[in-house]
Nucleic acid binder design. Structure first.
Lengths: 332, 332
DNA sequence: TTGTACGCGTTATCAG
DNA sequence: CTGATAACGCGTACAA
C-alpha cells in the first residue's frame, strides 16, 4: 500500500507523471503509462481516494439516510439508489435513524463532516426536523424522498400520499364499504402517515361518513391483534381495513385469519406501498403501488444532477392502485 | 466551511490549539476551549474528516458488501450492522453485487481505494471468488458473513447451512413425508444454496430415499408456478416442498394456493432464513430461523475487534427450527 | 510529453 | 498548556 512516489521511482518517472497515468491516462504516452502500471502492480499500489478527496475537495460519496431497512420499501429503494450511484462513479454512505430526530441530526452532522458530495434523505417529519433546518444553511445538494414537498428549499421526490390514500379509500367506498378503519404505526413519527390519514378522512367525509379515529400500532411493521379486535366486535363492526403500509396490512390479514375471519369475504384489507411480496401471496394484497425503484433512481439521479450543476426540480411520481384479492364488495 | 486556521485566528490561538480543542478537549484549558468553540460557531466550522483520515491513516469507515437488499435477511442484517458500527463511531459504505463476481471485484477495489478500515462481506461463492483471492494479500480486517468457513484465512460468521437443511428435511421426514422436493434460486450463484441442497440430499439418503433434483427458479426471491406444476402432477406427486429461502417459500405457497392446493393439508412448505413476516402470515411459515440481527451484530463486532487488535475467531451461530402452520403430517 | 512545486485540512512531534 | 512545523498522498498549475 505504498504511494505514488514509490511507483514513480520504480517506473523511472516523476511522481506527477505517475499520478497522471491514473487520473488523466490520455495525457501520458502509452509506453510511459505501461511502465507506471507495471511498477504499481509490482509494489501493490492502489490510488488513495482519501488523499484525492482532500486535494480535489470532492469525495464522490453520497450520504443516504433512511428511517429503517426493515421495510422493503426502503431497502429496495436503497438498492436502486446504489445502482445508479455506482453507475455514476459514486459510492454510498448509509445510515438509518429509526424515525428518531436526534439520530437524524447526528447522522447528518457525521455525513457533513465526511464531506459527502450530496445527500438523499427521508426524514421522519419534514415539518419539524432539526436536521433540515440545519441543512438550509448548507450549500450541499440535497434530495428528499417521500417527505411532502413542504419545505420549498429542498428538491423532493415523492408520490402524493394524500391523494393516494384518498383514492384507495374511495376504492373501498365504491365497493360498498361504510365501516372502514385505518391502521398505522406511531403516527406522530411520520409525516407521510399523517398525510395518508388525512386522505382517508377526506374520502370518508366527502362520502358523507365520519372518519374513524386512527388505530395506532406500536410498530410500523406489525399489527397487534389485541388492538384490532375491539374494532371487529358487534359495536364497531368494520368491513374494511386500510393500512398505512403493506407490512402492517399483511400482518393484519394474518391476525384476522388467525381469529377466524376470512379475507376478503368478511373483511377487506388494503395496503400501501406495493411491495413485491404482496402480489405473490394468496390472497394477493390490494395496495397503493409506489414506484419503489423509480423513487430511488430519480432521487439519486437528481442529486447527481445537482452536483453536476444541472437545473433539477421536485418530482411527483405516479402511483397506481393494485387490485388484489384482499378486497371485495361489502355484503351484509 | 472554513478550516481550522481561520477558527484559530478568530479565537486568538494557534491552529494546533484549535485542533486539540476538538480532538483532545481535555488537554486544553476550558477558557481557551470555549473561545475556540465560539469562533468555530461564528464561522460555521466543521471538522473535515477527509483531512483527518489522510493524516491519521484511518477512515473509521467499514465497507459492507452484500448480494442484494431485496431479501429481508440481508437488509435486516445490514440494519443491525449499521447500529453497531455507529455505536462504535464508525460509518458504513454499502454496495450490492447481485451475486455477480465481477461486481464483487469492482466493489472491493473501490472500497480498498477508499481505504476502509475493515470489510464485512457476503460473497456469492467463496470457493471461486476472485475478490477473496485478492484480499488474501491485503492486511485489511475482513469478516465474511453466511459464506461457509472454507477459506481458513478469513473470519467467518455463519450458521451451519448444511446441518440446518439436514434437520429441516428431517422434520418433514418425521412428519411422514416421502416425496419432498427442494426449490432454490440460481444455485450455481450461491455457495449457501449448494450447501443447503447437500443437506437436503443427505437427509433423504440417510432416510433411505433418493433425493430429487433441485427445482431451480430464475429468481432468488420468486417462485414460478410453471416450474412447480410438473412436480405436483400424478407422476411426481410431492407432498412437501422445502425452499432455499423464505421469499421463495412464501411465493411458492401463493402459487400453490392459487392453483387450488391447500397448505399444509395437501402440501407442506418449509422455508429458510426465518424472516419476521413469515411468522405473521397465515398459515405461518415453518422455517429455519437464522439469527439475522445477531449475524449482523457479531460480524460488525468482529471487524471492529480485529481493527482494535483483539484476537477474534470465526463464529458458528445457532439456528432454530420454527414450527409454523405451513407444514403438517403427510396423509394419503 | 514530462518535471517542479505547492496546497488541500488535519494530527503528531517536538520545543517552549 | 500552547505554539511552530512537518508530514499524510495526491492533483495540477506552470515551467521546461
Amino acid at each position: 500500500m505504498t504511494d505514488l512516489l514509490t511507483v514513480a521511482r520504480l517506473a523511472g518517472v516523476s511522481r506527477a507523471t505517475a499520478a497522471r497515468a491514473f487520473s488523466e491516462p490520455e495525457k501520458v504516452r502509452e509506453a510511459t503509462r505501461d511502465k507506471v502500471y507495471a511498477a504499481s502492480e509490482a509494489v501493490g499500489f492502489r490510488p488513495n481516494y482519501v488523499a484525492r478527496q482532500l486535494r480535489t475537495q470532492s469525495t464522490r460519496i453520497i450520504g443516504v439516510m433512511l428511517p429503517t431497512l426493515c421495510n422493503p420499501l426502503f431497502s429496495e429503494q436503497l438498492q436502486a439508489m446504489e445502482q445508479v450511484a455506482r453507475a455514476g462513479g459514486y459510492s454510498l454512505m448509509v445510515a438509518t435513524t429509526d424515525y428518531d430526530a436526534e439520530r437524524e441530526s447526528a447522522v447528518m452532522e457525521n455525513m457533513l463532516r465526511q464531506r459527502v458530495d450530496g445527500l438523499v434523505l427521508t426524514v421522519a417529519d419534514a415539518q419539524q426536523s432539526a436536521c433540515l433546518a440545519l441543512l438550509e444553511r448548507e450549500p450541499l445538494p440535497v434530495v428528499l424522498v417521500h417527505n411532502p414537498a413542504a419545505a420549498p428549499h429542498f428538491i423532493t421526490v415523492s408520490v402524493d400520499n394524500h391523494q393516494a390514500m384518498y383514492q384507495a379509500t374511495g376504492r373501498l367506498l365504491d365497493l360498498g364499504h361504510r365501516h372502514i378503519g385505518m391502521i398505522a404505526g406511531p403516527v406522530q413519527q411520520s409525516d407521510r402517515a399523517r398525510l395518508r390519514y388525512q386522505g382517508y378522512c377526506q374520502a370518508m367525509t366527502n362520502a358523507g361518513m365520519s372518519p374513524l379515529p386512527l388505530i395506532e400500532m406500536a410498530h410500523h411493521t406489525r399489527a397487534d391483534t389485541r388492538l384490532l379486535l375491539p374494532w371487529l366486535g358487534p359495536e364497531q363492526k368494520l368491513t374494511a381495513l386500510i393500512c398505512s403500509n403493506d407490512l402492517l396490512a399483511l400482518s393484519a390479514i394474518g391476525c384476522l385469519q388467525r381469529q377466524g375471519y376470512r379475507v376478503p369475504e368478511q373483511i377487506s384489507v388494503m395496503g400501501f406501498d406495493g411491495i413485491a411480496l404482496g402480489e405473490m401471496l394468496c390472497p394477493s394484497l390490494s395496495s397503493v403501488v409506489q414506484p419503489q425503484q423509480e423513487l430511488g433512481q430519480v432521487a439519486m439521479e437528481s442529486v447527481l444532477g445537482l452536483i453536476a450543476g444541472a437545473v433539477i426540480s421536485s418530482r411527483r411520481l405516479d402511483f397506481t392502485l393494485r387490485q388484489g384479492e384482499s378486497i371485495a364488495r361489502a355484503r351484509f
